[in-house]
Design a protein around this nucleic acid. Structure first.
Length: 834
RNA sequence: GCCGAAGUGGCGGAACUGGCAGACGCGCCGGACUCAAAAUCCGGUGGGGCUCACCCCCCGUGUGGGUUCGAUUCCCACCUUCGGCACCA
């Protein structure tokens, strides 16, 4: 018997898969293409090629591979492609440091990751491999930008935007975490710049509605997106400024409190601030206030605990419901980015307004009383009343429940043309410009005569030019390339300049899953029939850190493409699984903390199969788990145990009579082991397909191997036993295949069979699942007092009788009365005694 | 502050619909094999008590209550940890 040598067999089978193109999935119309009802698109989030794969990647790709291999062996045509999210800052920053070209660095890194993925043995259709930084990919990213532009979904505007001083580029709202850059954690500040946006806000309602189309998305991911979109229903109400010919609309979710408004607020950035104070004595203090608000970092301004500040403008806004003049203040707790940048303030029913009113000594006027009681007194209230209640002090709306009053007031405003029902969103348009080098150039040309002109489709791709210096200087490095910038206007032929910003790399990854379906198409981004055949993705797997960013952008992109008639589906990812992180020494693995476990080292020492097995055995895949250095040793030992057991079976069963005898006569230990085998088949199948519980699937196979070792000597004694052992060996090898494909391929072959990845998945024989006897638990008053071996066929009466006649039970029932019997067939009998 | 997830042996974790808590693995202890060691195989391993021959009893799933014949599982309150959002009108 030779020793388990993972290095040797893994190289051998990886070579075999490569030569046979074992995991190539043919497109419709080609030989071997399956009926669409049998397709399964299994996808893991594509890696950013930053040098090497880390353990999170190993977990992600192993999980995807287990599903892909499992589904393939269950008769599905599996589509399992891979690519690289290859544009982005790390390569560019490395280029700045070393002087190498980002393209060269990226090529080295993607090649390395390709090698690592091959060494992991993942069943990828490599014929569809792509990198988002290749011109034949980003040509189509630019093409989509033009399509968005045509539809008015890509637009340029001057706006206050997030600026990361360290990355020297602007960021989308989604890429600012707690006021810091999502990538480098530097504090983000605001700059006013002309930038390109995608109109994702137009799709806010559809992004919300279509959650209904998503199956098995984790609730928390949907909740995070829902909160991020932040839809609020309310009303827009127009206030007129006294003495000036000016109307200012406000958005409110509480039209029911309109009669309680006692002042009015503008955001410091509001365009009418200057108009209100110009030429008055209030001008200078207000201007000073606006200027100081602009200096504050946004996260400081957003602190709820901060004391309210503001400045009176000397002007008054007329409350449309009662004609009352409300003093207009400027305050930085009003955000220009939300609603209209102006609010009516109702201190009695909004805590923020309440704090402001107390500080500036403004009247607090309650208009909602507690449901059965009275309204508070504005002068003595210590906090705003934000609960539901009954309307008071509001003229003819008095005594209405407040929610109903809100609707009635909105209707009245609408009929008087003073306002209407309105919806507001927290979601902002997606800022896609980046002032960096390593990304897809935005295909736009600026002409003095013709204005903003899209690059004609025939001229795509707009190639990224080579430049001398990649260092960020607050504008894109490609702006330094005269050759690139200066061009002819496609409309008039006159001198014009190219846009020099590149696109956010999240644009690249918003459609890569579509390109996989038709990656070599050079006439269009993909063939419509082909994309509709493979899409949507049946199972998407990735980290929860993309809950909002990538997953929302990709959903948006897909909806736009649907509207363009390019795809026939509205959602890209039908099922989503978000994996937990791997911790080490109590913390996330990170280079700066120095607690990184390198996958290559473990593949080198134990082999890929051991690593794959261990990373799934360690715990439930959706939870964060702790990496244990000694734990992987156990997985390696287990595979050695499987290897020795199967090798021994091969030796001892060579001379078996052919054809093999039927199991029908199996009895005793042979029958017990057969039963166990079928139960394990059923459990592993269910754990993989229904629950994603790979850890318990693996432990079930371990149990089977343990049982087999104990029964081995007895079973080797006769032919019938040997036949059973051989069956168990084949089943173990087959069940492990999704987890340890190299080991299984090798042992399956040695057992005298063909290629295991082409074999059907084992089926549990339902007749053998049931055990002949079971252990009946007998409880007295809920405490376990005895266990009895009883036949599985025993009736309820039999169980009760068996329980009562137990000598151990007699001790507890003697001299007492059995007041109740609870009988759970197949499990227990509980006797309640008094 | 609001929303969500999680708290089980020395450690990672299991217990699927309310029914034997601790499967499986790590670690540790003991035995077999060996001149010896490694590897391997077998057994033990929540805490406490006992007439400790493994018979039996008590306690035990973050804390305190509740529902139930019976609760890791359901309900209420609280504590801790981790994620998300956070002056969004």
């Amino acid at each position: 018997m030779d020793k388990y040598n993972p290095a040797e067999i893994e190289a051998k089978w990886q070579q075999a898969w490569k030569e046979q193109q074992a995991f190539t999935a043919p497109n419709p119309g080609n030989a071997g293409a399956a009926d669409r009802s049998r397709k399964s698109y299994v996808l893991e989030m594509l890696p950013y090629p930053s040098g090497t794969l880390h353990m999170g990647h190993v977990k992600n790709y192993t999980m995807g591979d287990v599903l892909a291999r499992f589904r393939a062996r269950n008769g599905l045509t599996v589509f399992h492609p891979m690519g690289y999210d290859a544009f982005g800052l790390p390569a560019e920053n490395a280029a700045i440091k070393t002087g190498a070209h980002p393209a060269d660095l990226t090529r080295i890194n993607t090649a390395n990751i390709n090698q690592q993925l091959h060494r992991l043995g993942v069943s990828i259709d490599w014929s569809r491999e792509l990198a988002t930084c290749e011109p034949d990919y980003y040509k189509w990213t630019q093409y989509f930008f033009l399509k968005f532009f045509e539809r008015g979904l890509a637009y340029r505007k001057e706006a206050s935007v997030n600026w990361c001083p360290s990355c020297a580029t602007v960021l989308a709202n989604e890429q600012v975490v707690q006021g810091n850059c999502e990538r480098c954690s530097t504090a983000v500040n605001q700059r006013s710049l002309a930038q390109w946006f995608f109109r994702i806000t137009d799709y806010a309602d559809r992004l919300l509605e279509d959650f209904d189309l998503l199956k098995s998305w984790p609730e928390r991911v949907i909740t995070m997106q829902r909160n991020w979109i932040g839809r609020s229903e309310g009303a827009e109400v127009v206030f007129r400024v006294a003495d000036l010919d000016l109307d200012i609309p406000v958005f409110t979710t509480r039209p029911d409190t309109l009669f309680g408004a006692t002042f009015f607020l503008l955001a410091p950035e509001h365009e009418l601030v200057e108009t209100l104070v110009e030429g008055t004595a209030y001008a200078n203090p207000v201007r000073d206030y606006v200027a100081s608000a602009g200096m504050k970092p946004p996260q400081g301004r957003a602190a709820a605990e901060r004391e309210k500040t503001g400045e009176f403008t000397g002007r008054y806004a007329i409350n449309p419901v009662n004609g009352e003049p409300l003093p207009i203040y400027v305050s930085d707790y009003v955000l220009m980015e939300y609603g209209t940048g102006a609010i009516m303030a109702v201190p009695a029913h909004d805590q923020r307004d309440f704090e402001f009113a107390r500080k500036f000594d403004i009247e607090v006027r309650p208009v909602i009383a507690t449901p059965g009681g009275a309204a508070a007194h504005g002068a003595t209230m210590t906090a705003a009343y934000e609960e539901e209640g009954v309307i008071v002090n509001s003229g003819r709306f008095d005594r209405m429940p407040n929610r109903e009053a809100g609707r009635a007031i909105t209707r009245w405003l609408s009929s008087e043309h003073l306002g209407q029902a309105a919806v507001s969103y927290r979601l902002r348009d997606w800022l896609v410009s980046r002032q960096r080098y390593w990304g897809a150039p935005i295909p736009i040309i600026y002409c003095d005569r013709c204005g903003t002109v899209p690059v004609p489709e025939a001229d795509l791709p707009v190639l990224l030019p080579d430049v001398e210096d990649y260092a960020p200087k607050g504008r894109s490095p490609i702006a330094a390339s005269e050759e690139f910038v200066n061009t002819a206007c496609p409309a008039c032929g006159g001198a014009a300049r190219r846009e020099t910003d590149t696109m956010d790399t999240f644009v690249d990854s918003s459609w890569y899953f579509l390109r996989y379906t038709d990656p070599h198409n050079n006439r269009e981004p993909f063939d419509k029939q082909v994309v509709n055949y493979w899409m949507p993705v049946d199972q998407y797997i990735g980290g929860v850190e993309h809950a909002i960013l990538h997953l929302m952008y990709a959903r948006f992109f897909t909806k736009v493409l649907y509207d363009l008639g390019m795809v026939d589906f509205k959602e890209p990812f039908t099922n989503l699984f978000t994996q937990g992180m791997i911790y080490y020494k109590g913390a996330k693995m990170s280079k700066s903390k120095g607690n990184v476990v390198n996958p290559d080292e473990h593949v080198g020492r134990y082999g890929a199969d051991t690593l794959r097995l261990y990373i799934l055995f360690i715990g439930p895949p959706e939870l964060d788990v702790e990496w244990q250095d000694q734990g992987i040793e156990g997985s390696f030992r287990f595979l050695g145990r499987v290897w020795r057991f199967v090798s021994e079976v091969i030796e001892k069963t060579e001379a078996l009579p052919q054809p093999a005898p039927d199991f029908g006569s199996a009895a005793g230990e042979a029958a017990a082991l057969l039963g166990k085998t079928h139960r394990v088949v059923a459990k592993v199948t269910a754990d993989i397909s229904e629950r994603f519980r790979f850890n318990t699937a693996i432990s079930a196979v371990m149990e089977l191997v343990n049982d087999t070792y104990l029964a081995r000597d007895a079973l080797l004694a006769d032919d019938e036993g040997r036949v059973v052992l051989r069956f168990v060996a084949e089943t173990v090898v087959s069940l492990l295949d999704p987890f340890t494909p190299h080991l299984s391929a090798e042992l399956w072959h040695r057992l005298g069979n063909g290629d295991i990845w082409k074999e059907p998945w084992p089926q549990a024989d339902w007749r053998r699942l049931k055990e002949a006897t079971f252990e009946l638990v007998v409880q007295i008053n809920g405490k376990v007092r005895d266990r009895l071996k009883v036949p599985a066929s025993a009736s309820r009466q039999d169980l009760a009788a068996a329980a009562r006649s137990s000598s151990r039970i007699a001790v507890y029932t003697e001299g007492k009365q059995i007041v109740k019997e609870i009988i759970v067939p197949g499990r227990l009998v509980n006797l309640v005694v008094k």
